[in-house]
């Protein structure tokens, strides 16, 4: 075939610079370690959130109030607890973990799916120096942040209700905000890993029905799990929400001990494999 001046030279491509790996991927992890552009991705999500903050603020303020009224004041009058605890007080620590859980999970399912598939947000970021791992880490961090924001708002509601119902008994309750961040990091990572496998929006709801809702009911937030058969308690111990609720119970009442540190350790320990799973699965989805 006729060629013009553009005949390429036939030199061999240069050897890889020492210490460089393809896309920064570590051989024994299968992913690159996310770098500082994680923060840029997080900033992007934050900016979009604050653009829409008025719409985003209402649910976390209203939903817990409805739950306190319906369950705490309605159902609660029929519930007899040991000691002098009111049922509405028993609910508090659970609410401080459940609604943040929903916020983090929604963000990592629907929010991430839209960014990945519908709006091309991930594609846009991928052509900048940000790596896939940084997009995933930024999104996981944002899911966790959504949980923390949600917990902070609920805490405001609970503090406001405390003079009447005695919901908050210790300033340690402030630490439920970082606790929601940790829970959100775990669940956001699992949510992103699931989203990476989804081929349609409707598939996302399975994660909800089969994982999130059972966790919601059997976290010990609504009733002590001792009343359940032993195997159910055992299963519940493997779900993240239970540990967040137990941790919150200590923080809200101020009655804190080694067991609570154990719950935190459980969440932190599970975060690392969950986060790796998110990086590994979502990377494969993004880099075909």
């Amino acid at each position: 075939m006729a060629t013009t001046t553009s005949t390429p030279t036939t030199e061999a491509p240069p050897e890889p610079p020492s210490g460089r790996r393809r896309g920064g991927v570590l051989p024994w992890l299968g992913v690159a370690v996310p770098g500082r552009r994680t923060y840029r991705v997080w900033q992007r999500n934050r900016d979009v959130f604050f653009q829409l903050w008025r719409a985003e603020l209402m649910p976390p303020l209203v939903e817990p109030v409805i739950m306190f009224v319906a369950l705490g004041l309605g159902l609660g009058t029929y519930v007899e607890l040991t000691g002098d605890t009111e049922y509405i007080q028993y609910l508090g620590p659970g609410v401080l973990a459940m609604f943040p859980m929903f916020a983090s999970v929604f963000e990592s399912l629907f929010g991430a799916y839209f960014r990945m598939d519908q709006h091309g947000t991930y594609a846009a970021i991928l052509s900048t120096p940000a790596r896939p791992e940084e997009i995933i880490a930024g999104d996981a961090a944002w899911a966790a942040t959504r949980g923390a924001i949600n917990a902070a708002l609920i805490l405001v509601v609970m503090v406001a209700l405390t003079p009447v119902y005695g919901l908050i008994e210790s300033p340690l309750a402030l630490l439920t905000i970082p606790a929601a961040f940790v829970l959100g990091a775990v669940l956001g990572s699992l949510g992103l890993a699931y989203t990476s496998q989804a081929r349609s929006i409707s598939q996302l709801t399975y994660f909800f029905s089969l994982f999130v809702l059972p966790m919601f009911w059997f976290s010990g937030g609504f009733f002590p799990l001792e009343s359940l058969p032993g195997w159910a308690t055992a299963v519940a111990w493997f779900t993240p929400l239970l540990h967040a609720v137990e941790l919150n119970r200590g923080l809200v009442t101020g009655d804190i001990g080694w067991a609570h540190l154990g719950h935190l350790a459980w969440l932190v320990a599970v975060f690392f494999p969950a986060f790796w799973l998110a990086l590994w699965t979502m990377r494969r989805r993004l880099v075909e």
Partner: peptide, 9 residues
């Protein structure tokens, strides 16, 4: 890119 992927919000 071929498809516009601006941030709609």
């Amino acid at each position: 890119p071929q498809d516009d992927n601006l941030d709609q919000d």
